[in-house]
């Protein structure tokens, strides 16, 4: 398989998810560096050259607010989800949940169609990624 093709599709898949992840994480205040670290600690690595433009875009769309404050003797820009962003985040999460459910159903049905179980005991019960699998 062409590794570039996988990379292209992976990026497409990630693009929308990053927005949701950033909005979720900014329900509490962060500045860019700590936001990136907290996302990485939870399994979502994101380049700073992707994160900072994304933060600016979300702010310009009115979904985030920011303010410059001094901390550790340096000026830092702190971000937080805006009032407008909260209901939108709920909508996005509902959409994400619905999409995930559909994909899981599709994956299960195609798995069963391709691999008809000979006996009930052998049939797969869990299909898909394990919960602790790291997203990259």
């Amino acid at each position: 398989m062409d590794p570039d093709l996988f990379e292209k599709l992976r990026l497409e898949l990630r693009r929308g998810s990053l927005t949701v992840a950033v909005l979720l994480q900014l329900r509490s205040e962060h500045y860019g560096y700590t936001l990136r670290k907290s996302l990485a600690e939870r399994g979502l690595d994101i380049d700073e050259s992707t994160l900072y433009p994304l933060l600016r875009r979300l702010e310009s769309q009115g979904l985030l607010t920011s303010e410059w404050r001094e901390e550790d003797r340096r000026n830092k820009r702190f971000y937080r989800i805006a009032d407008l962003g909260l209901p939108l985040l709920d909508q996005l999460l509902a959409e994400w949940g619905a999409l995930n459910a559909v994909l899981t159903r599709l994956q299960s049905s195609s798995y069963v169609a391709c691999n008809p179980a000979p006996a009930a005991a052998d049939s797969p019960t869990v299909v898909g990624h394990s919960a602790d699998q790291k997203e990259s």
Binding site: Y31, G32, Y33, R36, E48, Y52, R56, W68, R74, R77
Partner: peptide, 13 residues
């Protein structure tokens, strides 16, 4: 504005 934020990020790293 962008450079100030980038500077903080780089110095933090």
């Amino acid at each position: 504005d962008i450079v100030a934020e980038l500077k903080d990020s780089l110095l933090s790293q």
